[in-house]
Simulated assay, not measured.
Amino acid sequence: MNFKLIVVAAGFLLTTSLSAFAQERGPETNLPLPRFVSMKASEGNARRGPSLTHRIDWVFTVKDQPLEITAEHGHWRRVRDREGAGGWIHYSLLSGVRTALVEKDMLDMRATPDGTAMVVAHLERGVVAQIDECRPEWCKLKAGGYRGWVPKSHIWGVKEGEVLE
């Protein structure tokens, strides 16, 4: 649903989309769209449309990989990965567990959310890590037995400014 907000101010007519004010909700779950989830299964077919009769366009093969849901239809969710590949996948293959994909090679994982804090590990580009929590600028991740903080700008799987506890 795309509503328009019309405001008359000082004799001028201003029109803007309400999407800036109210986030779209999925018709099946009433959860925000878009939103991030992860792959529950180690393999999942992404189809051209929301049913088993539609052709498979892509196969996700990484368990816990973060995916972004952009639409819902019945038991199907339209998802995309970091590169934009995707399609319709059955909801049973997805998990609400939040994960992130490291986008910077040798990303410093720090003991506290501070650029000068002690480095506890270096994460390679492409590592999938579980998100423990996120603040506006930093996220606490768990990967390879290590826990620490990374700048949100160097991971994919969480929205800018999103806070997770």
Results as ranks from 00 to 15, higher is better:
R98S: 09
R98Q: 13
T99E: 05
L101K: 02
L101A: 04
L101N: 02
L101E: 04
V102E: 07
V102C: 05
V102Q: 03
E103I: 14
E103W: 03
E103A: 10
E103T: 14
E103P: 00
D105Y: 09
D105A: 13
M106N: 15
M106A: 13
L107N: 08
D108E: 14
D108N: 14
M109C: 10
M109S: 09
M109L: 15
R110W: 02
R110A: 03
R110H: 05
A111P: 05
P113L: 05
P113A: 10
P113H: 08
P113T: 10
P113R: 06
P113Q: 11
D114W: 08
D114F: 07
D114L: 08
D114N: 14
G115K: 10
G115M: 13
T116Y: 11
T116W: 08
A117L: 05
A117P: 07
M118T: 13
V119Y: 00
A121F: 03
A121I: 01
H122I: 04
L123I: 05
L123W: 08
E124P: 00
R125P: 09
G126V: 01
G126Y: 03
G126P: 01
V127D: 12
V127F: 05
V128L: 04
Q130S: 14
Q130I: 12
I131N: 01
I131Q: 01
D132G: 11
D132K: 11
D132Y: 05
E133N: 09
C134E: 07
C134P: 05
C134Q: 01
R135D: 13
P136H: 07
P136S: 11
P136R: 10
E137W: 09
W138C: 02
W138L: 07
C139S: 08
C139M: 06
C139L: 05
C139Y: 02
C139E: 04
C139R: 04
K140Q: 15
K140T: 09
K140D: 09
L141G: 04
L141A: 08
L141N: 06
K142I: 13
A143V: 04
G145T: 06
R147H: 12
R147Y: 07
R147D: 06
G148K: 03
W149D: 04
W149E: 02
W149H: 03
P151V: 10
P151S: 11
K152T: 09
K152Y: 07
K152P: 03
S153I: 13
S153G: 10
H154E: 15
H154M: 13
I155V: 15
I155R: 01
G157W: 06
G157T: 10
G157C: 10
V158E: 11
V158D: 11
V158Q: 10
K159L: 15
K159V: 13
E160V: 15
G161T: 03
E162P: 06
E162W: 07
V163H: 00
V163G: 05
